[in-house]
Design a binder for these strands. Structure first.
Length: 582
RNA sequence: CGGGACGUAGCUCAGCUUGGCUAGAGCGUCUGGUUUGGGACCAGAAGGCCGCAGGUUCAAAUCCUGUCGUCCCGACCA
C-alpha cells in the first residue's frame, strides 16, 4: 500500500481525552477514532492488525478442533429469561423493543452467546455419537458498560472470539479445556504478548476449572497475586491467602477491656488516626446479609473482605453488605461502630483476627470503640476461615514464598461451565444406554480488540508503537526520502513491487514530506522493519534498514537489498515462532 | 450510580478571576516561493452558533440556572 492512497491520520500531539499510553498511541498513530464513549472506529492501520490477530486465532482454533460459525448479535430476550441472565446481566444487557407489523419484539444485543449456541445445539444434537463438539465465532459483542474507559480497553461494543464446547462427560470436557488452554497460550505467544495464565473464580464445577489470561500492565484493571518462585498466579478474587487456622486462645498479655470515645470516627482510618494506632491492631466488623440473615464478618483492619470466599465459607448462595437498618438492629449503633463484643448475630472470623491481642473494635454504641479486645475473653470464635483478598507478602499456597501483586489486562478466559445452560435450555443427549443427560459445556473467550490494546499498552517507547512482525499492520515500511527524485523513485518502486511479489506486507511512504517528518511517523506507527532509500545512500550503492527496536540503521547493497530484507524477515519470523509453545 | 475535572478553529491550548473594541496563539490545512537524512523557513489565505438552552445586563466566551457530552477516581463488570 502507498501511504498517499490510504488513510493514516497521525497526530503530533496527545489528544486531551487519552491518558494511558495505548489509548494515546492508538489515536496518534491513526489506528482508531472515537465515535462516543465506549465506541470506536477502526481505521485502516488498526483494522489490519485486528485482522491479523483474528487470522491467528482462527488458525489456532481450527487446529484445536474448533468449528467456526457466525451467530446473530440480535437475540430474542426470552432466551435470557430462560437462563436467568436477563436479571443477572441487568443494565449491562442492551435490550429494546422493536415494532414488526402489529407485534412488538423484545430483543437484546448479545453480550456473549451461551444462550444462542446452546439453543442451536439443543435443536440439533441428540446423541453421544455427535459429541464432543466445539463451536466458535469471531463477532461483535455489546455490553452496556457502566463506565467505558481507557480507549479500546473497555468499550460497550467490542470484538470477541467466543468458543463453546459440548461434551458427554467430565473427561471429555477436561480434554477440550486443556486443548483450548494450550491454543490460547499459542495465540497470545504468536501475537507477541507477554501473558500470564491465572487461576480464576471457577463457579459450580469448582477445582481447577477457570483460568484467565492476563497481560501484566500497570494500567490493567485486574489485580493478580503472583509468586515468582512457584509460578502460582491467581486472580485477586480467587487467590488463596496461604494462611492456616491459628490457635485460638486469649493472649497472656491481655489488657482490660476499655471503652473510649471516638466521636464521628466511623472508618478504620479515622479511628486509627484518632487513637494513634495502626489499622493492623483493629478488628474490622462487617455486617453481611447471608441468604437474608445477618452475620458479622471479622477481618483485620487493613484487610479487604472477599464476598466469594465468605459465600463459600458459609455455604450460602447470596451474600451482600447489610443495610443501615439491619446494622442498627444487630449492633444497636449506626454504621461505623460495629464490633464483635456483645453483637446480636453470628460471628465468622478470618484467620488473622484471633491472633490480634488487645485489638480495637467498635463498641456497638454510637461514637465509641473498645480497646483491649481479646478472643476467648471478650468474644468467641471456634474456628477461622480465609475470608479476605490476598495482599502482597501473603505466603504463596504452593511455595510459601511471599506473593506479589501485579496489575493485568484480561485478554482471555477459559471456563468449565458444566450444565448451567444446557439444563435451562434443554440441551440433552442420549448415551449408550439410552439415558438422557444434559450436555456438559465449556466456554472460551478472547477479547480480540483488547489484544490490540494490550499490545499497544505493553509494546511502545517514547517515540511510538512497536509491533511484533506477526500482527503489525505492515511488516515493512519503505521510505523513499525524496519523491521528486525520479531515479530514487525508480529504485523505491522496484523494491515496493518486488517485496509485494514476494508476499511481504509493505507500506511505502510516498508522501512529499521531509525525511524527519517521515521518520517521526515511522516511529509512531511502529512498523517493525524500516527501509530507507535516500539519495546519499544510492550514491554509494546502498540502502538502509532498521528494526523498530534497534537504535541505529544498517546499510546494505542496493542490488541485493530485496533478498537481504526477505532474509531478515524470515529470520525474525523464526525468532517469533520460537517463542510459541509447541 | 456517587465524587471530581473539562467543553473556545481539525489538534494542543490562552482568554473567564474583575462582563466592554472585529475572540487569540502554536501545530495542521490551502496558495506561492525557498528548502530536503529526525516533525524546515518566508509571505499570504481559509477555517469559530466560545457544547446547547434559558436567565441576569445597555452589553455575556466571561456571571447564574438547566441540559448534553467527554475524561478521571470509586461502585459495578455472567
Amino acid at each position: 500500500m502507498r501511504w498517499t492512497q490510504t488513510f493514516i491520520p497521525t497526530m503530533k500531539e496527545n489528544p486531551a481525552d487519552a491518558e494511558i499510553p495505548s489509548h494515546q498511541l492508538m489515536l496518534r498513530a491513526g489506528l482508531i477514532r472515537q465515535l462516543m464513549a465506549g465506541a470506536y472506529t477502526y481505521l485502516p492501520l488498526g483494522l489490519k492488525s485486528l485482522k491479523k490477530v483474528e487470522a491467528i486465532i482462527r488458525e489456532e482454533m481450527n487446529a484445536a478442533g474448533g468449528i467456526e460459525i457466525f451467530m446473530p448479535a440480535l437475540q430474542p430476550i426470552d432466551l435470557f429469561e430462560r437462563t436467568g441472565r436477563k436479571d443477572a446481566f441487568g443494565n449491562v444487557l442492551m435490550n429494546f423493543h422493536v415494532r414488526r407489523g402489529d407485534r412488538t419484539l423484545h430483543v437484546a444485543l448479545g453480550p456473549t452467546h451461551e444462550e444462542v449456541v446452546t439453543d442451536l445445539v439443543a435443536r440439533h444434537i441428540s446423541s453421544y455419537r455427535q459429541l464432543p463438539l466445539t463451536l466458535y465465532q469471531i463477532q461483535t459483542k455489546f455490553r452496556n458498560e457502566e463506565r467505558p474507559r481507557f480507549g479500546v480497553l473497555r468499550t460497550s461494543e467490542f470484538i470477541m472470539k467466543d468458543a463453546y464446547s459440548f461434551s458427554t462427560n467430565l473427561e471429555q470436557l477436561d480434554a477440550v479445556y486443556q486443548q483450548m488452554y494450550h491454543a490460547y497460550c499459542r495465540i497470545f505467544a504468536r501475537c507477541g504478548l507477554n501473558y500470564l495464565p491465572v487461576e480464576a473464580e471457577s463457579g459450580p464445577i469448582g477445582g481447577d476449572a477457570s483460568h484467565e489470561f492476563m497481560v501484566p500492565a500497570d494500567n490493567g484493571e485486574d489485580r493478580i497475586m503472583y509468586c515468582k518462585s512457584s509460578g502460582y498466579a491467581a486472580n485477586l478474587e480467587r487467590a488463596d491467602t496461604g494462611r492456616k487456622p491459628p490457635q485460638i486462645e486469649t493472649s497472656k498479655e491481655a489488657k482490660p477491656l476499655e471503652k473510649v470515645a471516638t466521636p464521628n470516627a466511623t472508618s478504620i482510618e479515622q479511628v486509627s488516626r484518632m487513637l494513634k494506632i495502626t489499622p493492623q491492631q483493629m478488628i474490622k466488623t462487617l455486617i453481611y446479609l447471608v441468604d437474608g440473615k445477618p452475620v458479622a464478618v471479622l477481618l483485620r483492619g487493613d484487610h479487604e473482605a472477599n464476598e466469594a470466599k465468605i459465600r463459600r465459607a458459609l455455604k450460602a448462595s447470596q451474600v451482600a453488605l447489610a443495610d443501615g437498618v439491619t446494622i442498627e438492629e444487630v449492633t444497636g449503633a449506626p454504621t461505623g461502630f460495629a464490633g464483635p463484643v456483645g453483637i446480636r448475630c453470628p460471628i465468622i472470623a478470618d484467620h488473622d483476627v484471633p491472633v490480634i491481642a488487645n485489638a480495637v473494635s467498635g463498641a456497638n454504641e454510637v461514637d465509641a470503640h473498645l480497646t483491649g479486645v481479646n478472643v476467648g475473653r471478650d468474644y468467641q470464635v471456634t474456628t477461622t476461615h480465609d475470608l479476605r483478598n490476598a495482599t502482597p507478602g501473603d505466603p504463596c499456597p504452593k511455595s510459601g514464598a511471599p506473593m506479589e501483586e501485579v496489575q493485568g489486562i484480561e485478554v482471555g478466559h477459559v471456563f468449565k461451565l458444566g450444565t448451567k445452560y444446557t439444563e435451562s435450555l434443554d440441551a440433552n443427549f442420549l448415551d449408550q444406554n439410552e439415558t438422557r443427560h444434559p450436555i456438559i459445556m465449556g466456554c472460551y473467550g478472547i477479547g480480540v480488540t483488547r489484544v490490540l490494546a494490550a499490545l499497544a499498552e505493553t509494546s511502545h517507547d517514547e517515540n511510538g508503537l512497536s509491533w511484533p512482525l506477526s500482527v503489525a499492520p505492515y511488516e515493512v515500511l519503505l521510505i523513499p526520502l525524496n519523491v521528486d527524485d525520479a531515479e530514487l523513485m525508480k529504485v523505491a518502486n522496484s523494491y515496493y513491487d518486488e517485496l509485494k511479489d514476494n508476499g511481504v506486507d509493505v507500506l511505502m511512504d510516498d508522501r512529499d514530506q521531509r525525511p524527519g517528518f517521515k521518520f517521526k511517523d515511522a516511529d509512531l506507527i511502529g512498523i517493525p522493519l524500516r527501509v530507507v532509500i535516500g539519495g546519499k545512500g544510492l550514491q554509494e550503492g546502498k540502502i538502509e534498514y532498521k528494526w523498530r527496536t534497534d537504535s541505529a540503521p544498517q546499510k546494505t547493497a542496493v542490488d541485493t537489498g530485496v533478498e537481504t530484507i526477505l532474509g531478515l524477515l524470515d529470520e525474525r519470523r523464526k525468532v517469533e515462532a520460537s517463542r510459541v509453545p509447541g
